[in-house]
């Protein structure tokens, strides 16, 4: 049985770019431990000679002719941007 510690949750949250308080980390640790323990059920199965499935259909690379097509107009692309200026996305200052 894997034990999920508060520290591990904080580390995983950091990798996933999620801010997390100590209190939340304890809460998530309990839940994620229960979930990962349930997942250990898979260890019952011998899968040594089984091929992994990444996709259920036989997929092949899809190629197209290398020709340029018109992109979306800049004005339209900026429609959901919080702040923009001169056709550029404006973000908060993060460097002094």
């Amino acid at each position: 049985m894997a034990k999920m510690t508060k520290e591990e949750v904080i580390e995983v949250a950091h990798l996933a770019r999620l801010a997390i308080t100590d209190e939340e980390a304890v809460h998530f640790a309990d839940q994620l431990e229960a979930i990962t323990n349930a997942m250990e059920l898979l260890n019952e199965l011998d899968t040594e000679n089984v091929e992994p499935t990444t996709h259920v259909l036989p997929l092949v690379n899809v190629m197209r002719e290398d020709k340029s097509i018109e992109g979306l107009p800049r004005e339209l692309v900026m429609k959901n941007v919080k702040e923009h200026e001169g056709g550029q996305v404006r973000v908060p200052t993060i460097l002094d």
Binding site: T36, L42, N43, L45, T47, V50, E51, P52, T53
Partner: peptide
Amino acid sequence: AYYKKAQKVRTLIK
């Protein structure tokens, strides 16, 4: 232990 194992079990289920 998790991801690859699960992909293999996916094959068995299929």
